[in-house]
Amino acid sequence: MNGIQAVIAVNEGKSVQYYDHEDDAWLSFDKKTGFRVGCLLGEPNHQGQVAKFRIKPSFILLNGIKVPAPLQEEPTSPINYWWFNPKKPNGIATGKWLDDDEDHAIFNNIGIYLEEDDVVQVRDAYREVLKEPANV
């Protein structure tokens, strides 16, 4: 999500985060967060980095394992996304949101993620659930 989308999301009451490159962490973004307008428009900061924004992820339990929840609202613009696909050797598939029937089917039936790291957690939890129980 870009800075303008982040501001709109905050105005809609959504919890938004920005990526702090210095702390290597996602931090809360709201109307009081100090960003230059240029940074919100995608211009690099004084360190040459472009600001990244996201909706604060929510979590679900997958057989007792806490994992990120899939995106709750369909994207409104072309954006890369990932989803869990157990048929793939690495368990992850990727696509670009084109607002077509395939995108809607994946969104509604599987769930999509805007961060690859999120779907990696889902894949790992799924694989953990499938492990054979230890002999007792």
Rank of each mutant, 00 (worst) to 15 (best):
M1R: 06
G3F: 02
I4V: 07
V7L: 01
V7T: 01
E12N: 13
E12L: 03
K14A: 11
K14L: 08
V16A: 05
Y18N: 05
Y18Q: 04
Y19M: 05
D20E: 10
H21M: 13
H21F: 15
E22T: 08
D23C: 10
D23P: 00
D23H: 05
D24F: 02
W26C: 00
L27C: 03
S28P: 11
S28M: 10
S28A: 08
S28R: 13
F29L: 03
D30R: 04
D30Y: 04
K31L: 06
K32E: 08
G34L: 09
G34F: 02
G34I: 01
G34S: 14
F35N: 01
V37G: 00
G38H: 02
L40E: 08
L40D: 06
L40M: 01
G42A: 09
G42Q: 06
E43K: 03
P44Q: 07
H46P: 00
Q47N: 10
G48W: 03
Q49S: 08
V50P: 05
K52P: 05
K52E: 09
F53M: 06
F53W: 01
F53N: 03
K56Q: 09
K56L: 07
P57R: 12
S58P: 12
L61E: 14
L62G: 02
L62I: 07
L62R: 12
G64V: 00
G64C: 07
I65T: 11
I65M: 11
V67G: 10
V67I: 15
P68F: 13
P68I: 15
A69K: 11
L71P: 08
L71V: 13
L71R: 09
E73W: 07
E73P: 15
E73L: 09
E73C: 13
E74A: 11
E74H: 08
P75F: 02
T76L: 08
T76G: 10
S77P: 06
S77Q: 12
P78M: 13
I79D: 15
I79R: 15
N80D: 08
N80R: 15
Y81I: 01
Y81C: 05
W82I: 04
W82K: 07
F84H: 09
F84W: 10
P86W: 01
K87Q: 11
K88I: 07
P89G: 06
P89S: 10
N90V: 08
G91W: 04
G91D: 05
K96Y: 11
K96L: 11
L98F: 04
L98N: 12
D99P: 01
D101M: 12
E102Q: 04
H104I: 14
A105E: 08
A105Q: 08
A105P: 00
I106G: 04
F107M: 06
N108K: 10
N108A: 15
N108Y: 03
N108R: 06
N109G: 03
N109W: 09
N109F: 10
I110Y: 07
G111P: 03
I112C: 14
Y113H: 11
L114C: 14
L114T: 14
E115M: 15
E115T: 14
E116Y: 06
D117A: 13
V119T: 04
V120H: 07
V122C: 12
R123T: 12
A125L: 14
Y126N: 02
R127M: 15
R127A: 11
R127S: 14
R127K: 14
L130Q: 15
K131L: 11
E132K: 15
A134Y: 13
N135M: 14
V136N: 12
